[in-house]
Design a protein around this nucleic acid. Structure first.
Lengths: 218, 218
DNA sequence: GCTATGTTAGTAATTGATTACAAACATGGA
DNA sequence: TCCATGTTTGTAATCAATTACTAACATAGC
């Protein structure tokens, strides 16, 4: 907030509890870092966007790097994985279409609602910060493990073709993630379908690709 | 090259023809920009890496931005598409497996041999430079058109399932590109197969996914 | 009144870009 | 063949602006 002028023409400062200010700075900085990268974002910009003086930034975070680390924590912590429950259910019921459709939609919708996350991840990967590695280890790898494990079980049950299930997961997540990337970064002017439709079509292609064809249907 | 001292203790400068020096600067800058981004790379670094003073950079390129544009030109110009011929042949012979395997391998090998290209593309996309848009328009879009057109023809011939061929191409290129991205940026510690194998497996999954199954073969 | 929250006004270092000047080269006319 | 003349390729030093970060002082609100 910028200082506001009251009725007596006197400037009144907007003081905020430390925790709240700290959180506000994190939010503001997250957006700026995601738009312009770590080196591309200046502490002055952040302070201006937060409506405080630059010194306030350094009262809450010792260095610019510390602020970045706090953003990392915030993201890792607050990353919502409530789609996990639905995926569990789909696995239990051995409903592959629903499983992969849910997974795809969760990813696409996350990136649509929070494009800053994807951009921040890419920047941090390119700039060599630890966010990317941490995110891969704590968020992405478990998904690989779970899906890959499930597929391996389905291979044994002669439902999925005998091949490297890690490659399958990589392939499917590639379809979805790459689509988000193109959409988020390049705008994607020539493929404007909804995330629901894209999820369904990706899941269909993928499942036709890995399921052993039975002649029961069509 | 740094100035070298000859036998008579006299400093001899290493002068280079303008065109050659210009080219050398482009190469050096390309690597630095790809590693640290546009804002993350200083003209001083570039000059040091090129072994000349900073003023030389600005003699050949009016601004840092101009240097970046020259790199863009260089990449667009020198981007090798000799796999196009092999893809044409595969299309002519209606050999889908070979078509998509060739495409995948060409992409993966390009990124393996020249990781700077992928990184530069990502940075330029994130930083909002025009390289990304230009590359998409001149290099990527034509591939989408050609493959998508071919698949549409094969849909009519009842070989490929009736669905959006653009989504199919996006899906396949997603598998491949995303794999390259993970490998280039995050190192990919848990999927170490060769590009040849990955190309084949991706192509198989994808083709099983979009081809209408005939019962002639297994 | 006290203290946490804020500001103003700085720091030294680094940024992209420019200056003045020197060394190496090309070449035409004697 | 030679060297005087003009051009090209280079350097060192410096510019104003901006960087991350800090010190000293001010004030809101309990």
């Amino acid at each position: 907030m910028l200082p506001t002028v009251d009725s007596t023409q006197k400037v009144t400062l907007h003081k905020m509890p430390a925790a709240q200010r700290r959180n506000q700075i994190i939010q503001v900085a997250k957006n700026l870092f995601s738009q312009k990268g770590f080196v591309g974002t200046t502490t002055r910009e952040i302070s201006k966007a937060a409506g405080v003086s630059e010194a306030i930034i350094f009262r809450h975070f010792a260095t610019k790097e510390d602020l970045y680390a706090a953003i990392i924590d915030f993201i890792i912590q607050g990353y919502n994985q409530d789609f996990q429950a639905e995926m569990d259910l789909a696995m239990k019921e051995k409903d592959e279409l629903r499983l992969f459709q849910t997974l795809a939609l969760a990813i696409l919708e996350t990136h649509r609602k929070e494009p800053a996350l994807l951009r921040l991840l890419l920047y941090s990967g390119l700039e060599g910060h630890k966010l990317s590695q941490l995110f891969m280890d704590t968020q992405v790898r478990p998904i690989y493990q779970r899906i890959s494990g499930y597929l391996s079980q389905r291979v044994k049950e002669k439902v999925v073709v005998r091949s490297d299930t890690m490659v399958m997961v990589r392939g499917f997540l590639g379809m979805v993630s790459h689509h988000s990337l193109i959409r988020t970064i390049y705008g994607d002017p020539f493929l404007k379908k909804s995330n629901e439709v894209m999820s369904k079509e990706f899941a269909q292609i993928f499942l036709n690709g890995i399921l052993i064809r039975t002649s029961k249907k069509k």
